Computed example of a mutant assay.
Amino acid sequence: MQFLTRTLPSFLVSWLLTFTLASLFHSQYVVNQLVNVGVVVGFNDRVNLTLEDWLGLLPTYGAIIAIALALAFFVTWFIAKKLKNQGIQLFVTAGIVAFATALIAIESIMNITIIAGARGWGFYAQLCAGAVGGYVFAKLIKANKQKTEHHGF
């Protein structure tokens, strides 16, 4: 029951934020590369591209991120139980490792970077999205645990 009431909602919120940041970073990286070669990209075009990328990446990159984070957080959950005071740092690291592993694995398997926004400095922006996801997950789990203990559920 704890999984459905505390863990799953926390995971879904952190995944949605993580995916949204990863998609945003991807879109802005691509727009920046266009601007670097002289293409004029207006604000409305940036917003439209960002929204279209979010919707377009959701079924594929969103699923990849969900699987990578779920695996990383699952393993980290057991490690965090042993190292009780290190939970936030461990989940931040797990988010970073999840993204690095997924992006490197995809590139190794397919021999191409399918997420254009994960090239160059964009790779590190994607890792930052993973770090934020890990941080949010750890904070939500901790807050839900304290709320449950306080209310006696």
Rank of each mutant, 00 (worst) to 15 (best):
I104L: 15
T76D: 08
L34A: 14
V97L: 09
V97T: 09
T5N: 15
A22V: 07
F43I: 08
V75T: 08
S14C: 10
G133D: 05
G152N: 06
P59G: 07
L83Q: 11
L57H: 05
Q28M: 11
A116W: 03
Q126V: 02
A22R: 00
A129Y: 06
H26Y: 10
L24Y: 15
L71Q: 09
V35T: 12
C128W: 13
L71H: 00
H150E: 13
T148V: 15
Q126K: 12
L57P: 00
G130R: 02
T20F: 08
L24R: 12
A143S: 11
A98C: 11
G120W: 01
T7D: 13
F25G: 03
N48Y: 10
T5G: 13
Q146N: 06
T76H: 02
A68P: 04
E52G: 14
I106G: 00
A129T: 04
S27T: 14
G152H: 11
K84W: 13
H26K: 12
P59S: 10
V75Y: 04
I88F: 13
Q86S: 02
K139S: 11
D45S: 12
A70P: 02
Q89V: 03
Q126G: 08
T93R: 11
T5W: 13
W121Q: 14
S14H: 08
L12C: 07
Q2W: 12
T148I: 04
F73A: 07
T7Q: 10
E149D: 15
Q2E: 15
V41L: 02
A105D: 02
F78C: 09
F73I: 12
T148R: 05
F11R: 08
V37S: 05
L21W: 01
I112M: 14
G56I: 12
T5P: 06
F19N: 12
K142Y: 05
S23T: 02
Q33W: 05
K142P: 03
L8P: 03
L103I: 12
A22F: 01
T76E: 02
A131V: 09
L49E: 04
T7K: 08
H150I: 13
T148A: 15
N144L: 00
S108K: 15
G120Y: 07
N144F: 11
A131C: 09
S23A: 14
F123D: 00
K139H: 05
A22H: 07
L17S: 03
T101S: 14
G134L: 12
G130Q: 01
I141G: 11
V97G: 04
V75W: 06
K84L: 15
E107T: 10
L55D: 01
F99K: 02
P59F: 12
A129P: 01
L69H: 06
L55M: 06
A131D: 00
L69F: 13
T101V: 14
V31M: 06
G95T: 07
A22Q: 04
Y61L: 13
V136Q: 08
A22K: 03
F123N: 03
N85D: 08
N32Q: 04
A80D: 11
A129K: 07
T76V: 08
V30F: 09
G87N: 00
Y124R: 07
W77K: 03
G122M: 04
I104D: 07
I64L: 10
I88R: 10
F99A: 10
V97E: 00
A66N: 11
E52D: 10
G122D: 05
G130T: 03
W121F: 11
G95R: 09
